[in-house]
Design a protein around this nucleic acid. Structure first.
Length: 716
DNA sequence: GATACGTACCTTTTT
DNA sequence: GGTACGTATC
C-alpha cells in the first residue's frame, strides 16, 4: 500500500489507521535511537568488564559484605564451592537471596568466571529476578552468565548442536495449540478415532514419555494396553511430522538436549568444561529428563548445587519426580553430598506457620523432619470461614476485601484469592464486579493464545520457516482469499505427490513443472506465494517490528478484524498493538545476545513467554485471583484460601491415590505459606458443580488443623 | 462457507 | 451452568 492511500484512509476512516501512520513515521527515528543505544551499550559493557576484573584482581571488593544478614544455614550455602549440594529451602526461607549471594560469592571470593556459571529456573520471572539481583549485588551486567529457564537454556544448546541428533539448527518451536493440531493430523492419518482417544490425553501421554526421556522406539517396547499402544503409533508419527515441519515442541527442547548429552560425548565434554558451576532451582519439580540434564552436565566436576523444597512439589501430575530431591544424595554414592536445611521462615506470622506445619506433618513422604520456624511472633489469628454456598463465600471475600482496603489500609495488590480450579473464579469475579473491586485473574497463557495474536505470529512463523504447515494452514485463507479447506487439502495432496512440503509448493509454484491444480486455485496460490516471498525478502533487511507493520498493512489486518468481530474488534486491535510493543521492547532489550535478534529468535522468545511474564504494573492496585498452582513462589500480605471442600480440594480423583493425596496436601501447604500477615480459609457447605448442587463438607486438610489454631466464623 | 442448534465435557499447566 | 466442538442446513 502506498503512502498516499494510507493517508487517504487516515482522513476518511477511524483513527486507528492514522495511528498506524504515526507509528510508521516514528519508527525511523526509533530505529536510529536503537542503533545509537546499541553502540553506547557496547562501549559501556566493555568499560564495565574492565572494572569488574580489576576490582576482583585487586580484591577491591569486600566479600564479607556478601555474608551480612544471613543465618548459619544460608551462610553455609553461600560459602559452598565444590561438590554436590542440596539446599532444602522451606517456604519463605530466603532462597533467592541465598542463591544470588552464592553466585556473587563464587565470582568474587572464589574467582569463578561468570561465563562458567549456569543457573536454571523454571519460570522466566524467576530467571529475570535472579539475574537482576545478582547484577545489583555485583553492580555489573553479566552477559556471559547463563541465568535462564530450562527451556531457554536447552534452546540455546540445541541451536548450536541439534544437527548432531538429526535435526536442523533453524527449527521453530510449536506451542500447545500448534502441537495439538499436529496430534490431530496424526490421528487422522493413522485412522485413530478421536472420540475414543482424546487428542489431549494422547498429547499428555507423549509429554510424559518425553519427560521420562523415552523416544518413540523405546516407548513402543514398554507401552501396555490399548491406549498406550495407540499412543505409541501417534508418538512415532507425531515426531515425524514435527520434523517435517522443522519444528520442536516444548518437551522436545528438554528431551532432545538430554538425549544429546547422553549420546554425544564430544558435546557433553564441551558443555561440561564451559559450565563448571551449575545451579538448579525448584528441584522438586524436575522431571527425569531435566534431572538427567543436570546430572550429565555435572558428572565430571560434580559442582551441582540444587535448591528446592519437597513439601512444595505440586507438579508430579506433569511428570515431575519428587524423588529427584528426596533421594538426591543417592546420585553421588562416592561423594560427600552436603545437605542444608533452611527452616527459618522470614515471611509469615507464627499463627500462619503453625497452620502450615499442622497440614504438612500429615504427609509421610518427606525429606525434612523439621518444620518451619517463624521469627515474626504470633500475629493475627487465622480464620476459618464456613459459608452456605459459593455465592456467600464470594460475598464474604468481597466484604472482607473492602473492609481491609478501606478501614485497614491494606493495598488491593497485597491481597490474593486462591482456588483449586479456574472454574471457581467465575462467582468471585461476578461478586467483585458487583462490589466494584478491581481484580486481576491470572490464567495460564491467555495472551499468546488469543486468536489475533496467533494470526500475526502464524504469518511470522511461516515467513521464518516455510515448512511450517500448521501456520500455513492458519494464514492461507486469512483474510479470505478463496483458498478454503478443500483447496488446502488439494495443495497438500499435490505437494505430497511431488514429494515436497506444502509451503515449498506455494512459494515456488512458478518454478515447479507439471503441477496439476485447477486454474483458479493456481492463480490464487501464485498471488499468495508472491505476498509471502515479498515478506521474506523484506524480513532480510528490516526489523521484526517493521516486518509486522508491513504484514498488517499488506493484508489489511485491522480491517479484517473489524469486519469479522464487530463487537470487540477494538480490544483485539489493542492486543495486536500490545504485541507490537512487546516486539519493540524485545528489539532493544538484552534478552538475547546481539547476534540472536533474528526473526526466529524472536519467535522462540515469544513462544517461551507466558502471560505471567508481563509487566507488574498491570496488577497494581488490583486483587489477584489465581489457582494454587500459579501461586508458587509468590507472597501476599493477605490470603484467601477458598473452596476448601472435600471433593474439590482434595479433588475426588485423588481420594484413592496416596501419592496424589499427598500432592494435594502439599498444594494446600503452598497456599497457606504464601500468606505474610493474614489468612482466611473458607469453604462452602453447598456448591454448584456441573449444573448440579452438591452438599459438601469441609476439606480434610482443614479438619486436620487443630481447632485451637483457628478462629471460626460463619459467613451469612 | 456461514449459521444454528445439539451434545459431550468438565483438574491443576512453570515452558 | 457454561463452553466448545461437530454436524445439519441453507
Amino acid at each position: 500500500m502506498s503512502q498516499q492511500t494510507l493517508f487517504e484512509f487516515a482522513d476518511t476512516t477511524n483513527n486507528c489507521i492514522s495511528e498506524e501512520v504515526e507509528q510508521e513515521l516514528a519508527d525511523k527515528q526509533r530505529q536510529k535511537d536503537l542503533e545509537l543505544k546499541k553502540k553506547q551499550e557496547k562501549e559501556k559493557s566493555s568499560v564495565r568488564k574492565k572494572g569488574l576484573l580489576k576490582r576482583i584482581l585487586e580484591k577491591d571488593i569486600n566479600t564479607e559484605e556478601l555474608l551480612t544478614d544471613l543465618n548459619t544455614a544460608q551462610t553455609d550455602a553461600v560459602k559452598h564451592k565444590d561438590g554436590p549440594m542440596l539446599v532444602l529451602a522451606g517456604a519463605g526461607s530466603g532462597k533467592t537471596r541465598t542463591v544470588t549471594r552464592r553466585i556473587a560469592y563464587l565470582i568474587y571470593e572464589h574467582g569463578v568466571n561468570p561465563y562458567s556459571i549456569l543457573a536454571v529456573t523454571f519460570t522466566n520471572k524467576a530467571a529475570a529476578e535472579m539475574r537482576e539481583r545478582v547484577e545489583s549485588i555485583l553492580g555489573e551486567s553479566l552477559k556471559g552468565m547463563w541465568i535462564s529457564t530450562f527451556h531457554s537454556a536447552c534452546l540455546r544448546i540445541l541451536r548450536m548442536y541439534i544437527d548432531r541428533v538429526g535435526y536442523e539448527n533453524d527449527f521453530v518451536i510449536y506451542d500447545v495449540d500448534d502441537t495439538e493440531k499436529v496430534i490431530k493430523q496424526s490421528m487422522k492419518a493413522l485412522g485413530i478415532d478421536k472420540e475414543k482417544y482424546k487428542p489431549r490425553a494422547i498429547k499428555s501421554e507423549i509429554s510424559m514419555a518425553k519427560a521420562e526421556q523415552m523416544d518413540p522406539a523405546y516407548y513402543e517396547t514398554v507401552c501396555e494396553g490399548d491406549f498406550e499402544e495407540k499412543v505409541a503409533f501417534v508418538y512415532k508419527d507425531y515426531q515425524k511430522r514435527l520434523k517435517a515441519n522443522n519444528a520442536l515442541d516444548f518437551d522436545d527442547l528438554i528431551f532432545l538436549t538430554a538425549k544429546l548429552l547422553d549420546e554425544d560425548e564430544e558435546v557433553l565434554k564441551r558443555l561440561q568444561s564451559k559450565f563448571k558451576y551449575i545451579m538448579i532451582d525448584e528441584y522438586q519439580d524436575t522431571n527425569f529428563a531435566q534431572h538427567n540434564f543436570a546430572m550429565q552436565l555435572s558428572r565430571a566436576h560434580k559442582n551441582l548445587f540444587v535448591v528446592g523444597d519437597d513439601d512444595q512439589s505440586i507438579y508430579e501430575w506433569r511428570g515431575a519426580e519428587i524423588e529427584n530431591i528426596i533421594e538426591f544424595e543417592q546420585n553421588f554414592p562416592d561423594d560427600d553430598v552436603k545437605i542444608i536445611d533452611m527452616i527459618t521462615n522470614y515471611r509469615s506470622s507464627d499463627n500462619i506457620l503453625e497452620v502450615a506445619n499442622s497440614i504438612i506433618c500429615k504427609n509421610s513422604y518427606r525429606k525434612k523432619v523439621e518444620f518451619l520456624q517463624g521469627i515474626l511472633g504470633p500475629g493475627e489469628p487465622v480464620y476459618l470461614v464456613e459459608a452456605y454456598d459459593e455465592k456467600k463465600e464470594a460475598e464474604f471475600v468481597a466484604r472482607t476485601v473492602v473492609e481491609l482496603t478501606y478501614a485497614e489500609g491494606v493495598k488491593a495488590s497485597d491481597i490474593v484469592v486462591f482456588y483449586r480450579t479456574h472454574s471457581q473464579s467465575r462467582v468471585l469475579e461476578e461478586t467483585f464486579i458487583k462490589n466494584a473491586i478491581p481484580y486481576k485473574v491470572f490464567k495460564g497463557t491467555s495472551f499468546y493464545e488469543r486468536m489475533e495474536i496467533k494470526d500475526v505470529l502464524a504469518y511470522l512463523k511461516f515467513v521464518a520457516n516455510p515448512r511450517d504447515s500448521v501456520s500455513l494452514e492458519r494464514i492461507i485463507n486469512l483474510p479470505r482469499r478463496g483458498i478454503g479447506k478443500k483447496a488446502f487439502e488439494k495443495i497438500c495432496i499435490e505437494a505430497q505427490r511431488m514429494n515436497i512440503c506444502a509451503g515449498e509448493l506455494i512459494l515456488r509454484i512458478n518454478q515447479l513443472p507439471r503441477i496439476t491444480l485447477p486454474k483458479a486455485l493456481h492463480r490464487k496460490i501464485i498471488d499468495f506465494g508472491k505476498l509471502i516471498n515479498e515478506f521474506s525478502k523484506f524480513a532480510e533487511e528490516n526489523t521484526v517490528y517493521n516486518l509486522i507493520m508491513k504484514i498488517l498493512t499488506d493484508i489489511d489486518y485491522y480491517e479484517y478484524l473489524r469486519k469479522t468481530f464487530e463487537e470487540n474488534y477494538a480490544e483485539r486491535q489493542e492486543n495486536v498493538k500490545e504485541l507490537l510493543s512487546t516486539i519493540a521492547d524485545f528489539e532493544k532489550s538484552d534478552a538475547l545476545d546481539d547476534e540472536g535478534r533474528t526473526l526466529k529468535e524472536f519467535l522462540s522468545y515469544l513462544t517461551l513467554l507466558t502471560d505471567m511474564d508481563k509487566s507488574d504494573d498491570e496488577y497494581m492496585e488490583r486483587v489477584s485471583l489465581m489457582t494454587l498452582h500459579s501461586s508458587k513462589g509468590l507472597e501476599f500480605d493477605t490470603v484467601f484460601l477458598t473452596g476448601m471442600e472435600e471433593g474439590l480440594f482434595p479433588t475426588f480423583s485423588a481420594f484413592d491415590d496416596f501419592k496424589k493425596l499427598e500432592e494435594e496436601r502439599r498444594l494446600a501447604y503452598v497456599g497457606v505459606t504464601r500468606a505474610k500477615r493474614q489468612l482466611f480459609i473458607s469453604y462452602a457447605t453447598q456448591r454448584m458443580r456441573f449444573g448440579k448442587t452438591l452438599n459438601l463438607k469441609s476439606s480434610r486438610f482443614v479438619r486436620e488443623i487443630p481447632v485451637e489454631l483457628l478462629k471460626m466464623m460463619i459467613a451469612r
